[in-house]
Amino acid sequence: MTDKTNITLTINGHDHAIAVEPRRTLVDAIREDCGQTGTHIGCEHGICGACTVIVDGEPVRSCLMFAVQAAHKQIRTVEGLASGDTLHPMQQAFMDHHGLQCGFCTPGFLMLAVGVLERNPDISDDDLLDVLSSNLCRCTGYQGIIKAVRAAAIEMRK
């Protein structure tokens, strides 16, 4: 056994002091150690994108990072998108344009789309389509997701 290390994960501005083994993935630490279960785990090897979170402004697969690597970084998850009762424009657009059915993939798609649009607000429709090919959804057939993200992109540029 390897020893646990004490680290602090800052998730949506809140500090979580936790003790983890080096092999603990970031997504497991977010869910199991910090209790933030909005972020989902699908494949655990980088294929599905369900675990996408934003670390220091970059959307990343949290199953392919170790929690110890994210200490002292700013982590954002789906729980941090809405402000109070007002949904983030991306969340609202997913509701308005049928961007989800079962919702399993949704936190990952939201963090992917928000992360990319914050970095690159004027991204072209074609490039946005390429970005959305990063994540898998077994329900919607993607058209609703694409519509929602394009609508939110316009809203976020305002």
Binding site: G46, G49, E58, P59, V60, R61, L64, V131, S133
Partner: peptide, 12 residues
């Protein structure tokens, strides 16, 4: 670069 994996994987 655009052909390598996906955007979030290219961030790391």
């Amino acid at each position: 670069a655009r052909h390598i994996a996906h955007y979030p994987i290219r961030m790391r």
